[in-house]
Design a protein around this nucleic acid. Sequence first.
DNA 1: CTGTTAGCGCATTCAG
DNA 2: CTGAATGCGCTAACAG
Lengths: 359, 359
Amino acid sequence: MKPVTSNNLKRVIVKANFSSRDGVELRLEKRIGKIRDVARETGLSIATISRVMNGSAKVTEETRQRVEAACKKLNYFPNAAARSLSTNKTKTIATIIPNIEYSIYAKFISAIEQTLSERQYSLVLAISNGDEEMEVKEARKLLGMGSEAFILSGARHSQELYELLEGRNIPYVFTSIWDPALSTPMIGYDNAGLAHAALTYLKSKGHSKIAVVHGPPGSSDRISARVAGARKACNDAMRVSFLETSLDASGGKQAVQKLLEQDTDVTAILCLSDVLALGAYFGLAAAGLSIPGDMSVMGFDNLDWSTEIVPPLTTTNLPARKMGRSVALQLMDLLDTNTGLQSTLLEGQIIERGSVLDV
Amino acid sequence: MKPVTSNNLKRVIVKANFSSRDGVELRLEKRIGKIRDVARETGLSIATISRVMNGSAKVTEETRQRVEAACKKLNYFPNAAARSLSTNKTKTIATIIPNIEYSIYAKFISAIEQTLSERQYSLVLAISNGDEEMEVKEARKLLGMGSEAFILSGARHSQELYELLEGRNIPYVFTSIWDPALSTPMIGYDNAGLAHAALTYLKSKGHSKIAVVHGPPGSSDRISARVAGARKACNDAMRVSFLETSLDASGGKQAVQKLLEQDTDVTAILCLSDVLALGAYFGLAAAGLSIPGDMSVMGFDNLDWSTEIVPPLTTTNLPARKMGRSVALQLMDLLDTNTGLQSTLLEGQIIERGSVLDV
DNA sequence: CTGTTAGCGCATTCAG
DNA sequence: CTGAATGCGCTAACAG
């Protein structure tokens, strides 16, 4: 079954300009143009078509236009699989996050996607639910898909994942954390330092009986780093208790209610996540307590609504968007021009608003 | 440069079991095993390797094990591009959403991803920012990547997008909406009907002066459908005003503040999105008004925190997760077994909680 | 049950 | 500046 040349006119007419290497093709499915069709249409060779599709400079302006017209006419554009088989590139970057419903990840993902898009890269997304087994499984799938680089959350992953990635020489970077002890490229912020600063801030405002509300440290090294950081800021002159709860508004609310039940003398609550702070607001409201009059509350994340809530939430800003943009850019540079990855520490900062009383 | 057979022993030994069709390959990059390598390692043919990789039944248990061992040893697994070039399948489904930071989309995306994962499909995600031009651009990229099906938000899209998809015979489905007048497959809920029901509910509770707060209808047909539905529930015995604002907590807060400024006699606010309701709570709190004593508030979405907020928010539940799972399943069935798409209407329902006063 | 072979659609030398 | 030929890694008949 050789390529059709110019015999069998009827067929050619009926099927317009589509190639038909296989004689069957009886299905009604609209055939999509292939590079050969464009070549035939323009009377050029497939090599030339390929050149214009890839922006090679070695093409006359006139032929380029001719080709482009034909492409439009035939509704042609390159098949990614073929191209990637040939070039060994897919322009696809994988991101595995534990969860997307915590808005901080949504912001992050959003920034990644938009940045990748600028250079025609695509984002494939997987959600691990914070489970290392699941993460490996997903990674295997994403790798199988042809992902060229991986964006991972945190630094705690299964050995198997590293072996998988390194065995295939796939670059990966940790995000949302900062740990100078690690040699893996990472782009993130210093969770421990920031939490330390937050607790210190509370201390500077005169609070010495503090409750720290946080999610399950076992589920994420970002949480455990924050807890550790806060812990390190404690000293003998103060009494700070740590309350673990689920990482959502419900968890924050419950933690506060539990705290209030035990007739505490705590004057400030440091929530190591804004959604927890939201829950804390609810818990306090339910108890008829006012913020910051009866209790100070501090958050962590600086989500959009934190400035609108009443009173406005004093919190720590996390550069989620900047982080997303930065990883995306670095990874694309690495892939495109082999530029080395540069671990970068992004700054977070305390945003003073109205939820912490100066006592 | 023919395939290496068994000459050049040194090379073969040095490079372990990796094929080296091109003599160069001096880079230190770890080569990954290819199907030929596994074939050589096991002494079988590439066809057999392919068979076990694809779970074809026609293989002895013994050879299967032999192959699997070799795969593990050589760290081999199939190249997706090659496979997809050959099968014309990519197991990739594209989703374009306007925004991911509104938690309702995060829930939706999360459900899609998890469902696709169950059958080894991947999700490629793009964000359109509600811009039709952007959407087409993204779609072009996703198509170029080899996406086999598209999940679209709403029913309002550019003609160009339809042409693109239909020209290549790519199945697509609308989500988050329901419009029996459309012939395109869609999976969603009846925004207009639900908004109508919500306003009717308020009416049944004795409210006749109502403010409806909503996002920009121009940016989404879901919003405009909700507004239209609410509008249709109005009658002469009531006075309802519509306030357009930005679709976030800040918008909800501002809308309420504007409302209060004009010394209104409104007794209930219907927010056509839960984040708007969150903002409304903030606006009311800032004005020292209590819910539902001074003002009733009703939401739309049933986000996680809505049951925790004080008072708990009366809202309309939207089946975002179910919707995500359903589209994913249907699309995979279509792709795998050519099962037809079935437009489905998912039910939403009013969740009565404590934010609406019975007057 | 297993091997042989012919493409899948494109990028890319190497000639011209 | 353009064309012809080769191979990317794999699947799918078709033989055996």
